[in-house]
């Protein structure tokens, strides 16, 4: 523990923002649970090749729909493939989609939200009305429509989800910036002769990020669920590539004969989303300055 603490001190100083957040999270059990699950998921995705017990695409039709056993803890699917291995590999798809979708949404949302909030005027009006148009559609429905137009592939799924998702970030960033640009330290920077670009980059944006970090964490859960939903509907990942959504979709036909095919990936999916939400909530509390002192 000692060297870790020294490293922390070295990196972030005695009581920087980050170390305060870490201190706060330490005592937040649900958030720690969420974090543990997220770390587990990431490890699973990164080391899938080493930890998955079988080839996820190896079929054995003679043993199809086999229920969980010691040999195959999560059972086998309709082609006799090992479900545990497919879930492990499926985490790669889920996390990749989550990270990519959130990153793209963040980039678009931050850029447009910052322009909108900082410059204001007609630019604000145009950007916000476009955002409103996107927000007016039910998110998943719009994503389905977009993937239908763009064609079925995992890249198009990610593009569609990012297009659906950015307006939320743009709105939050904009409102943060509207608030922060009126604060004294921004005025102080202007009085000290700083340019607009500098004020935006070094004072306004960094101070706007706290709620965005929280939103992005919870957004990961949303993106994973949305990808599963699209794959479930057959719009996402194409077989035989394993995705949690598509495993659940194929298991649907055998829900009475082999309920483990749908329920186990369903539980994994629910648990992952819960983890991101719990961690996001914990972050929100940790970043809330009213809970400090």
């Amino acid at each position: 523990m000692r060297p870790l603490k020294d490293l922390k001190k070295l990196l972030f100083g005695e009581s920087s923002e980050l170390s305060i957040i870490i201190e706060h999270l330490k005592s937040d059990k649900p958030a720690l649970f969420g974090l543990a699950v997220i770390i587990l998921l990431v490890l699973m995705a990164v080391f899938a090749d080493f930890i998955s017990p079988y080839d996820p695409n190896l079929q054995d039709l003679s043993r199809r729909l086999e229920p969980p056993s010691w040999e195959h803890p999560f059972g086998r699917d309709e082609f006799g493939r090992d479900i545990l291995s497919r879930i492990i590999y499926g985490s790669r798809i889920s996390l990749t989609v989550g990270v990519v979708v959130i990153t793209i949404s963040l980039l678009i949302g931050t850029a447009l939200g910052a322009l909108s909030g900082y410059i204001g005027g007609w630019i604000d009006l145009v950007i916000m009305r476009v955002a409103d148009i996107f927000l007016a559609f039910p998110g998943l429905l719009l994503a389905i429509g977009l993937t239908a137009v763009l064609g079925q592939s995992i890249f198009n799924v990610m593009a569609a989800l990012a297009i659906v998702n950015w307006p939320g970030y743009a709105r939050v960033i904009r409102s943060q910036i509207l608030y922060i640009k009126g604060l004294d330290y921004v005025e102080a920077a202007r009085i000290m002769g700083a340019s607009n670009a500098r004020i935006l980059a070094s004072h306004v944006l960094p101070n706007s990020f706290a709620p965005i970090i929280v939103l992005a964490t919870i957004g990961m859960g949303w993106a994973i669920l949305a990808e599963a939903g699209l794959s479930f509907l057959g719009l996402g990942v194409q077989p035989p590539t394993p995705s949690w959504g598509s495993i659940i979709a194929t298991g649907r036909d055998f829900i009475f004969r082999a309920p483990h095919i749908t329920t186990i990936p369903g539980i994994v999916l629910a648990l992952s989303i819960l983890a991101f939400n719990l961690f996001g909530d914990g972050l929100r509390d940790a970043l809330d300055p009213r809970l400090r002192i």
Partner: peptide, 23 residues
């Protein structure tokens, strides 16, 4: 901009809010 902060500076009422909290 080259005058503000260089030749004319200003300090404010509220030192609590005039400093950027994360710098």
């Amino acid at each position: 901009r080259s005058i503000r902060g260089a030749k004319i500076s200003m300090i404010f009422q509220d030192p609590l809010t005039s400093l950027d909290p994360i710098v």
